[in-house]
Design a protein around this nucleic acid. Structure first.
Length: 124
DNA sequence: ATGGTGACTCGCG
DNA sequence: GCGCGAGCCACCA
């Protein structure tokens, strides 16, 4: 199992199918840390300024597919980033209304089965 | 080691 | 449904 928490977050996020979303809390729960939602958000914010040799960047990790538990794009982002997230999601078919809400009954990704998760974290 | 910092959540009123 | 307050956690100085 990868020792770096951020790396695990990125690996799981990369498995979110196009056109689907999940929440920070759910990603944390998948990693066995149900209360580490904030850390997940922090991990994704770190994608903004990656090291030059970093394998995980905003280009390789579909960060836009992670929203809050209410199914809303976090309004705490900088306005421009929020708008970009909405655009990216709409571009892949996710319906985002004017209040930046997404219907989780339609677009929520339930996550991988336990056996798959093990492979994701170990192999990637 | 210690404390500050978020792209979070949940429970209340 | 909305705002607030209080936990919670990995990172980094």
């Amino acid at each position: 199992m990868a020792s770096n928490f951020y790396e695990q977050v990125y690996k799981v996020v990369q498995r979110i199918p196009r056109g689907k979303v999940t929440s920070y809390g759910r990603v944390a729960a998948m990693l066995g840390r149900p209360r580490a939602a904030r850390a997940v958000g922090y991990a994704l914010s770190a994608l903004k300024d990656p090291r030059s040799d970093a394998p995980y960047t905003g280009e390789t990790v579909p960060w836009q597919r992670v929203v809050n538990s209410q199914g809303r794009i976090s309004i705490r982002h900088r306005t421009e980033t929020t708008a970009r997230q909405a655009d990216l999601l709409r571009a892949e078919g996710v319906v985002v209304d004017e209040q930046l809400r997404i219907d989780l009954d339609r677009f929520l990704w339930e996550g991988p089965h336990l056996v798959e998760l093990d492979d994701i974290l170990n192999q990637g």
